[in-house]
Each structure stands twice: as structure tokens, then as C-alpha cells.
Design a protein around this nucleic acid. Sequence first.
DNA 1: CTGAAAGCGCTAACAC
DNA 2: GTGTTAGCGCTTTCAG
Lengths: 360, 360
Amino acid sequence: MTGNPAAGKRYTIYDVAKEAGVSPSTVSNALNGTARVSPKTQQRIDQAIAHLDYTPNANARALRKTSSRIIGVILRDISSEYYAQCVASILQRALDEDYVVLTSDAHFRQDVMEKSVAALVERRVDGMMFIGGHSDEDSIRSVHEAGIPLVLGDRYLEGFPCVQFNNYDTMRGIVHAFYDAGYRRFGYLGEMLMNQQNLQMRFGGFERGLDECGISDENRYISLTEYLNVGKMQPAYEQFTKYLRATPPKIRPQIMFSSNDMVAQGIISAVLRSGLRVPEDVAVIGFDNISIAKYCTPSISSVEQDPYQLGDACFNLLMQQIHHRETENIMLTQRVAIRSSAPLAAENIERYGLQLYEEE
Amino acid sequence: MTGNPAAGKRYTIYDVAKEAGVSPSTVSNALNGTARVSPKTQQRIDQAIAHLDYTPNANARALRKTSSRIIGVILRDISSEYYAQCVASILQRALDEDYVVLTSDAHFRQDVMEKSVAALVERRVDGMMFIGGHSDEDSIRSVHEAGIPLVLGDRYLEGFPCVQFNNYDTMRGIVHAFYDAGYRRFGYLGEMLMNQQNLQMRFGGFERGLDECGISDENRYISLTEYLNVGKMQPAYEQFTKYLRATPPKIRPQIMFSSNDMVAQGIISAVLRSGLRVPEDVAVIGFDNISIAKYCTPSISSVEQDPYQLGDACFNLLMQQIHHRETENIMLTQRVAIRSSAPLAAENIERYGLQLYEEE
DNA sequence: CTGAAAGCGCTAACAC
DNA sequence: GTGTTAGCGCTTTCAG
């Protein structure tokens, strides 16, 4: 709090050393615990630091050391509750471990992704996390080739450390569970799969389940639309409204699966505003279990995949990578939240090895 | 793409200089456009850079220059769609302007806030943004005293550059509008106001409106609860369910105002699950206009305050601060999205100078 | 336990 | 147009 130098200008370790009557290296040692410092000296240094309101310059430190203690996080799209919560957990872990986080949002664009990656490389981040990515393999490979530790979150790419959810098994199990409960016509509405590996797994599990249950093509309504990559509810709403209008009741799916809760809500909305009922006419199940899902009318059945757990696991894995420890990919377990939009008995869920999400 | 040095180790400007047969300063000039470089030399340098896959070290640059081209963003709580979207717009602007963003989430805690601020100061950020803060005046003042440019977003603090929304006028106007439409008993459910200036303004405008309309105390139901600072829907739901059970119909509010859409949905949920109707028995109006609001059943009337506009304005203001230009505080205009949970004729809204949010 | 000196990678004077 | 050199603030040998 003592008078600072001109704006921007701050005191250096030399100023502290002079004030404390020791050498800069001793101050450095005291600051970092690099070598023992006598209690007396320590105290004088502490006083000087407090007196000058000295703050070490982390950029200078990063320049000198091999590590910057910066990690970079690149998201496919930060502007959803789900990924925001994931980031929140990463930020917390980082703060605890004295890392600082450079965040970047590619919002689905390859060029933005490349520029973001370049910026992080220039800052000499100690490691990077790619969360929920999309058609950006080149960027990832280039980071890897530059020798920068990296981790992929909520996706999988051969040869890279990953944290994934068990999308395939979950979807497959849910299909079986609803089949057992008497459902015979199934629908899916979601984004184009393209390079989104997590969505591919979901859809793969879905189809596998249908195959195993002997559901024929005419009893499947499948719509993968690129519009959903941008907006969520509006396109889902419009698309499904149109579909309902054009399709006789006997043909339309008894249950709709969707790629996230926003899309699910769009579908529900379409059903209700078309004068039909959820779940009696069409049941709907979402993904992500966003916080509002429980309170919607009807409440939305959803697949929960804990974003905090995701962030946490990514952080752990990245730390291991940075410290050159052996790592194994992490598979996190999704849980099924059964609510009004697609009701089901708990035992139906658990029979297929799925975990039930219990409301608090 | 040529073989990199050992992991982490990268080529320097000297390597590029040697490869191109020029001096480091020429490379620097070529890189930064600091001085004219002959086309031939430029080309040789470009080749060398490409050949070595050279990336400048931004930390070294930051050490040497007066600016780090890092900005710090500290959020009260990043884990909501609203603030995530605000961050998204900041990230985009930053990328365009060649800044890099260190993000921090205080999640309402003073100690976390302090540690975050310290970390950003160590990195010598060129400026900081405090978005949606809370009881952290000391941190802000200390940053200011350290001579670091800063901006406050979605809040106001005397003496600091701020970007705010017109909370007071909006709330006041809405009260009048609903009064005109015949409503006589008003309620408010939200977080404790404490140091949250934006909430204080909202509540202040609310009370002012009621006073002007001559609404007596017994026709006001006001609940400011600290539980809402943590969860949103669950506590709102529980609280309002309890309230409804304990309160005779003639006394309960005809319209409930709430501090955000999550709370609004909690209230709506409580009303519906108590066997009452929205809006016939209790109308409900939220805040933030999150993307799902339009698609809930009933759709939620809400006050829209564009998070992208907020982020953008904060970024602009911070740039001005950094470049020592004169700045004026920015007041952004909220818009009222009228939907089923609290219907109202458009002219009622516009009569009080409020802007109507038109659905796309 | 403490100090002197070199150097991390870059830019900015200032020569040429 | 280009090169030489010093130094940003720190850590790290290596002596003492």
C-alpha cells in the first residue's frame, strides 16, 4: 500500500533486496523456498515485501523457468451452462494448484480454433485442454507435435489422453429399458454427427440398441440436422412441429431421444403446442441434465454427465501428462435422471447396468 | 513442422536470424512491422520461420514491453448460461484484438477473489474486468491503487468505470405497467441484496414503483433469501411452495417478480405443482431471458439484458481505459420479453419508456 | 546461509 | 535497411 511507482511500473526483486539489505538471489530463495534462509533475513525480506507491496512478475519467472504455470483451455463453445460449469471446476482446481488459465472459445470454427491455439502456444502454456471439440484434429496434432502436453475432454481421439463419458453404453441401455417398458417406435433429433465423437457414440449406442431390440427402419425417426449446431431450441421446435403436422399418429415415435436438454425442451414445446401430450403421446428424453430440467413442466428426463467431474478429471489427467507420468484414459459414468417427460421404473434402468440419478 | 527441439524447448529469434542470415533485431522488425524490411530479407525470414516452425515467446515479449496483452476477467460466478455468454463475447473480442484472456471465477467467495486478483497481478495483465461482482470492493480498490486499468460489468461502484443495465427504470416501469393492467398485489423473490448493486437497483425500482402506485405493505410479499445465492430453483421452489400452502388466496401476490429466470421457473413450478395456474392465479416474471425461457411451459416473461452486449461494452471500455482515453460509464438498455407467464399488452410496456423484446 | 554473475527470449536505442 | 548491444525481472549455478 505504500506509494507505488508510476502506473504500470512495479517494484522488482532488486528493490526488495536493497530494502532488506540482502541480495536478489536471497530474496528469490526466500520467495520460493529454494534454499534455507535464516529467520532474521526472512523477516526482513517479508517486511520489505509488505512495505513495497511487491508482487513477483510471473512473466519474467516463466521466461527463466521451464514452466509458465499457465494452462490453456479451448472449448468448442463456452456459452452453455454445461461447459461453463466444466470451466468453473477447472478454474477452481487451477487456482488451488497455482496455475492460471487462459480460456478460449472456438465456437465451432476451425479458423478461430487455430488462432486460439497459436495464441496459447505463444504464451508457452504448460498444457492444454480441448473440451468438447469438433473438426479440429489438425490443431490438436500440431500442439502435440510441438511437444505440449494436452488432454481431450468429452471426446476421444486415437492416441491422445482423453476423458470421456460412457455415451454408447448409456444410450444402448436406455433404448433397451424403454423397449422393455413397451415402447416400439423410437426417434432421435440432434446435430449432425460430423467429427463430434461424443455425439457419434450416443447415436451409435442408440442404433445398436434399436437393432438388438429388433426395431425396424419404419419404426425409427432419425433427424440429424446441422441447424442444431447453432441454435438449439428454435430449430428443434420448428422441425418437430413440422414433423408432427406431417405425420400420422400411428407412425410417429413414442419416444424421442435428443442430443441435449435444450433440444429436448424444443421438442416438448412442439408436442405441447401441437395439442399433444408429453409423455402420453410422445415421451422425450434429453441430455446433460441442466439445472432447469427438473423444474420444467413436464420435468425433463435426462442423461446426467457431471460437468464438474469432467473438468476435474481433465485437470488431473493434464497434471499427470505435464509431469510425465503414465496416464490412462478416463471413462466417466453417466446417470439417468428419470422424470415426467419420459417416466420409467428404476429397475428397468438398473437392469442394463445404468446408474440412476437420484434427485437430492 | 520440422523436427522440434526437445519437448518444451522451442526455437528462438536467434535461431531464425541465423537461419535467415540476418540479425535478431531484423527478425523482430519483420515480425512486428517496427521498421521497414526489404522484400528479399522479409522472404528469407518468412522461410526461416516456417522452416523452424518458430513461434515468438509472448512472455519474453511481455517482459520487455510495457504491455503484456493479457487481460484478466474475474466473474462472480461463471457457471450460468448468462455469464458464460458474456465471457464468450469477451473472448471473441480479445482474440480479434490480439489479447489473451485469463479467466477467474470467484464463486461468491472473498478469499478466492483475492487470490485470483493476486494471480492476475503477478501476470501483469494490462487490465481487468470484474463482472457481476459481490462484496469485493477491497480487491477492486487494491487493483486500482496498483495502477491497473479496470472495468466493472453489470454493477456500479462510485469512482470506477462501469457498464450497467438500467435495472431501476426497468423494474419501476414494469410495476407501473402491470398496475395499469389491473394487478394490485405484488411479490418479489430473490437473493439477499447485500453488496450486489445490480440487485439493489432492481429491488429499489420495484419498491419505488409500488410506492408510486400506492401499493400498501400488506399487498407486498417480499422475500430476500440468502439460500438463493447458492442454488436457484430448488430453494425458490421450496420457499414458494411453503408460502402458498400457508397463505390464503386473497392475500397472495397476483404477480411475482424474481431475480432471474431460474428463480422464476422455481416459482412457476411451485405454483403449478400446488395445483394453481400460471398466470391466472399467480403471474411470474423472470430476469435474464435465458434461452430456454421462451420454450418453457408456460413460456416465461422475462427482462432481457444482452450478455453479449455487456461483454462487448466492457471490452470497449477497458480498451479505452488501457489507452488512457477519457471514458464515460455505459448504461445498457434492458428489454422486456412478454410471454405467457405474465402476459401484457405491448403498449402497456412502451408507455413507460420500456423497450419490448421482440422474438425473432 | 548468502552473494555475484550469467542468461531465459525478446525489443529498442543507437550506430552504421 | 540492417546490426550491435543493453536490459526487462527473474532464477540458478557456483563461490564464498
